[in-house]
Design a protein around this nucleic acid. Sequence first.
DNA 1: CGATGTATTGACCAGCTTCAAGTAACGTGG
DNA 2: CCACGTTACTTGAAGCTGGTCAATACATCG
Lengths: 267, 267
Amino acid sequence: MSIDVSQSSPAAALSFRRASRADDASCAHCPLRRMAHFQAVNAAELAMIESLKQAEFEYDAHTLLVQEGQSDGPLYTLLEGWAFRFKTLTDGRRQILDFLQPGDFIGLQQKMSDAANHGVRAMTAVRLCSFARDALWTLHREMPSLGYDLTWLAAHSEAHVDENLLSVGRRTARERVAALLLMLHVRAAAQDPAAARHGVLMPLTQQHIADAMGLSLVHINRTLRQLSQAGLYHSTSAGHVRLPDLAALAALAKLRWPLKLAPRPLI
Amino acid sequence: MSIDVSQSSPAAALSFRRASRADDASCAHCPLRRMAHFQAVNAAELAMIESLKQAEFEYDAHTLLVQEGQSDGPLYTLLEGWAFRFKTLTDGRRQILDFLQPGDFIGLQQKMSDAANHGVRAMTAVRLCSFARDALWTLHREMPSLGYDLTWLAAHSEAHVDENLLSVGRRTARERVAALLLMLHVRAAAQDPAAARHGVLMPLTQQHIADAMGLSLVHINRTLRQLSQAGLYHSTSAGHVRLPDLAALAALAKLRWPLKLAPRPLI
DNA sequence: CGATGTATTGACCAGCTTCAAGTAACGTGG
DNA sequence: CCACGTTACTTGAAGCTGGTCAATACATCG
């Protein structure tokens, strides 16, 4: 059983720092927008996004970005680093719902109800772009194309959770780990296709994998070892992961393959 | 292991019939709109919805409404009956993602990508309201308040999957069944608060519960029996379910309680 | 140089699956 | 009206997947 105690840990509570708005924080020069992985925007859309942007923040790894049950939580776009969404049971058992990578929107689901029904925690140091509280409605009203993008993001966020639910509900431990590594690898590689040849940076601990796949830490360890011995998984230091045979992993995971990612809207 | 063979079953393939547009199928008189459970719309919004509505269809129980991988699938609002969304592995194992009740939107996620990444199957006879293929973009463009509602629906659909993922990943069999029954009961009761005193109509088979909670049919049977003997669950004939002590079930399921449902937008 | 977080491995066992068989309810056609 | 097919539900027995407990190794870091 995995218990989430980090909320009450003083280290986690104190481990954040803020950065005021950087000098060149304009959305036009946002490095994410240069990636082919993200959809292009026109000038009007860019101006609208810019006008709703409030500031950039930086937080340390392990910072709690959104608390479960929090009302009137923040609205962010993740610019740098990884985070995860999670839910806990009343006795503390934690389930990771999905992992967030640069470009992902934080707080959309929560703004649609009176309180957040999941928490969000940074896995690495993160850089965030924060938006005005009423940005969602403003986007819809003033710029329907961006409102449409919000629906797109919500739908695709659900698709990630759908895939994880399929894994946790119907895949064996080996299949789950293979599927998760594969999905994260594809998403991470899409952000930097060139560098992905030699492996991809995936700042996961085995505890993260366990909490995402509904398994115990011990069993994840044994399963990773199996995959490693089968030559399907190789992890170097500092979270650098190489998956030498993606197709074999996909077959093992009973995953439809190949997987092609559509360009994402970026708000 | 649960294998989904029903796609290839001739009974399922032939078991649908269509109904042409009914005489009084205007949205203004839609019985769903009279429920307090759904948000009110103004005249302009109602006219917009009406203009995008194409026809009403009726299908028999077990009909496949959306096929996994289908491109250019339909866009429906479920008016009557229950359905479920599901995904399958390449070897046929099936996971139910969530259950759809009247008022739920079908096809939103699928329209946001080039192909449906999940299937939808009717559990009972269903009545559906179908919309034009480009209705999503039209709604966003012409009536931002309804575009916002679409985002709302997508976000809340994800919340259901989140809850199921928490169950499947971190709850024991007893807790999972308790949580599922409770969530479905609350949603069903919201549709007809008056009738809910004496139990609620839930057209679930034990196989559905098994496929939704990632357990085997046999184990669901034993678990339901336990709950029944504990006096927490009572099922009469024809899928009428009574949960005598909701708070006790919630405590058993480690679910935050009470659960209040916000009024849903209805498109 | 302890302190802390992460990874690793062994031993034991329990929750759940699988296999198997049988009952019950219902509709359909002879 | 009964025989039959179909679907849903029930129960027992055996065994496997993965959990729990425990101990150790290893790294980083203030």
